[in-house]
Computed example of a mutant assay.
Amino acid sequence: MSEQSAVGQVVGPLEVGPVAHGGHWVARWEGRVIFVRHTLPGELVRVRITDDTHARFWRGDAVEVITPAADRITPQCPISGPGGCGGCDFQHVSPAGQRELKRTVVAEQLQRLASLDWDGEVEEVPLPGPGADGVAADADDGVGDVPAWRTRMRYFADTQGNWGLRAHRSHTVVPLPDQGCAIAAVPAPDPGTGAVADVVVDGFGDQHLIMDAEPMGSGADLVQIAGGIEFEVPVDGFWQVHPRAADVLAGAVLDGLEPRAGEQGFDLYCGVGLFAAALAGECVRMWGVESGRAAVRCARRNVPGARFTAGQVGKVLHGLPKRTDLIVLDPPRQGAGKDVIRQVLARRPRAIAYVACDPAALARDLGTAREAGWEVVELRAFDLFPMTHHVECVAILAQR
């Protein structure tokens, strides 16, 4: 093989294989795997190589579609394709096709990493209608059928001071089109305001601007709403960015756990107490654990009848009661890991709810639980990140 870089070279035509976790598809060229973005299974495409630094695979963009798939549509955002913004992986795919791709990825990860067969669907989550709490369904900024669901956006200034978004796997800033970001419920601030800006919508529909010059934790807390409850959230803290996500996920957790009055439970990686509040509303005595001290400060105000501890979940668990009835886990993208899962299982809860934003991490942790004699009795997946490859899952476990 030549030592000359292949980046920029266009190869093909290539026949595209299955979707892979991460927003790309598998293709092969001269025996080498290429992970290709902006294509679909079964398409015949030409591919521009974007990364050849890995010995086992390369990365590329489909820059010419010779034979399109039935689910291919015309992207409504002019910067969503090759060389553009890295945010929307699936804008070239019909909405039903997007959900099928995500279903395929979830099922493949569960089978491969947890030996678990799953035949469920990825559930559509429409935006709230006009007059409902949150962002109105018609707030699409004039870009047609693309749902403007992102209630928190991070914008970056280009060399001319105009706002843009970063390209895929790059710090390069791609300037926003005239109509703005298609999936954003919040517009960019005025040009020349700064180098980085976060814009977030609170539970009342008000927009808040956080500039890069402001130190983390310096702003006032925001108020978000879920289940009719007002939650204080640090201005730079975590809250689900789809306006219906908090309600949908809390509802799935309650439906799966079927809490009983007088039970006790743990809310691990609890953030500002969303699931603790939902279960406390069913008369469950809750104890939350979260590493972020600002989030714990808010959680104590959000759920005054619950107990909260700030610290790493794996360490704090050693000091928590050795038995409990219910446990909710909502770990970061990398998952909870074997140590935390084993500590959770050792409590012998009646039921466990695992909320996951990454199907591979979820599958690894479910595999650990299944090896220890636990059963996945329900698993639901939700399309809370339209136009992207991301998918949210809620798994319910019980001991066999």
Rank of each mutant, 00 (worst) to 15 (best):
E232A: 12
D145G: 13
G84T: 00
G335K: 04
I229L: 15
P189I: 03
V328D: 03
W239N: 02
T309H: 08
A137C: 13
I341S: 01
D158R: 05
L329W: 06
C283T: 13
A245E: 09
G319L: 10
D267R: 05
G129S: 13
R32I: 00
E124F: 12
G217I: 07
G373Q: 00
P234Q: 10
G262V: 06
D255I: 04
V289A: 12
H171N: 12
H168W: 14
A280N: 08
D330C: 01
S115E: 05
A136N: 13
R370C: 03
N302C: 08
A27R: 09
V186R: 11
S80R: 05
H242A: 07
G23F: 03
A336W: 07
R364V: 04
W374G: 00
C298N: 12
A184W: 11
G373K: 04
G319P: 09
A20C: 11
V248Y: 13
R244D: 10
D141T: 14
L113Q: 04
I225M: 12
A185L: 15
Q98H: 12
D212W: 02
G281F: 05
V16L: 15
A361Q: 10
V355S: 05
L279A: 00
D190M: 08
H21M: 09
C181M: 08
G180W: 11
E230T: 04
A107T: 04
A250K: 04
R323I: 05
P304L: 05
Q91C: 06
Q334T: 15
Y269E: 10
L116R: 01
R152I: 06
